[in-house]
Design a protein around this nucleic acid. Structure first.
Lengths: 214, 214
DNA sequence: GCGCAATGTATACACTGTCCACAAGACGGT
DNA sequence: ACCGTCTTGTGGACAGTGTATACATTGCGC
């Protein structure tokens, strides 16, 4: 029943074996239902079947653990994007394919925010530390993080002649802004009680806006 | 030096007088530098020169206090928008004026996020409780909250013939999404260390995108 | 002027992050 | 094969938090 107790029982050795991973996994579970504030050091150690202070052998602070969880959440988002991209079929028309690529990114982003609100909020919680932006810990199977995947989709738009090259620089910020803002509205703001189809409709219009306005 | 002590000294009566307001004010100050997580019940009571539990006579919980602070932050945003709107000069051309109105809303929003990051983050922190959306506590001098001000700007766009009427419904969500997303990027995300002019440029492009893509 | 409702206080509990000193075990050099 | 050292986990402690429950003080309406 209680994973914590199981894990505690199942460990008869003094050393845990892979405590860092266990703590990270527990942290992810906590973030999953409860968002960033729910990832609590003591609870994570409890679930790992270990005394609170043991965590400090692997993470300098609660904040460090949270950053690790954050990276994992971003990686999950990247994987979701890659999956959505993989479903695309190239019909030969390069411009359509490029456009579909950008939409796939946006769609995956919004779906992730809807289906994993806790992880989503954790991924984009405060802190910031933009220094760690390039870390591979937050990447998907392709080794690219969500921002980089978006950048590639935009590059393809330019290659296909859909997006004028002079508008390419910094375009990811515009696209990301729109989609991220909508995601915030969808899972917490006033759009929360919209029906599925209403939400879909707005999502489509927003992606239209981005496509037209970029 | 310490406002807390001053306030504590300055109260010689058993009753505080206007504790609710004092707590709210302290909460706003805390949110101002530190964001939502920094608005801490005990610290607020300390600054009000009162024992922790006294707060519970005016707020059911820390969360209730935070909601009040949130409303105040939204009201401040509404005031900022109204100010920006008031600076507009009508040159006779209705379409230009309507467009400028929407841009003023967006500009005020972004400026607020930049100059008052703590309040901004508090205003749009989790929780949600969309039930309280109509509360006058989060309104500006006009009695309208930020969302309503945005709605009016969009109505004007329709009246001026700039925005087709069939695209009016739910348009506030599209516009808000874009601007809000950019605000998040600006004050915490990867855009934080952009120069002022770089940020300005991106803001302008984003507002262009909204105007064209709505 | 008195009694009651409102407001502020005292004490207490469970919970958190984190520091310090110590114990248990892994592991490599002799 | 041993023994010392370095890593990892433990125990106990402290300050800080939100909040419940019981009590004190005071303003206000009759």
């Amino acid at each position: 029943m209680k994973g914590a107790t199981d894990q505690l029982r199942s460990r008869r050795t003094y050393h845990h074996g892979d405590l860092r991973q266990a703590l990270l996994q527990a942290g992810i579970a906590l973030a999953r239902d409860g968002g960033p504030d729910a990832v609590v050091l003591r609870e994570a150690t409890r679930r790992a079947g270990v005394v609170p202070n043991a965590a400090y052998r692997h993470f300098a602070s609660r904040h460090a653990l949270l950053q690790a969880v954050r990276s994992a959440a971003l990686a999950a988002l990247a994987v979701a994007m890659e999956k959505q991209l993989a479903r695309l079929r190239d019909d030969g028309r390069r411009d359509d394919f490029a456009r579909a690529g950008l939409r796939a990114i946006g769609t995956a982003y919004l779906r992730f925010a809807r289906t994993e609100p806790g992880l989503f909020r954790t991924a984009f919680a405060v802190s910031g530390d933009p220094e760690t932006a390039g870390s591979p810990a937050m990447a998907g199977k392709s080794g690219l993080n969500p921002f980089q995947l978006l950048g590639i989709a935009l590059d393809r738009l330019v290659e296909a002649g859909v997006l004028p090259a002079e508008r390419r620089p910094d375009a990811e910020y515009l696209a990301w802004s729109a989609v991220h803002g909508l995601a915030m509205l969808v899972f917490e703001g006033p759009l929360r009680r919209f029906t599925r189809s209403q939400a879909r409709s707005i999502e489509r219009r927003l992606l239209d806006m981005v496509e037209m306005g970029l």
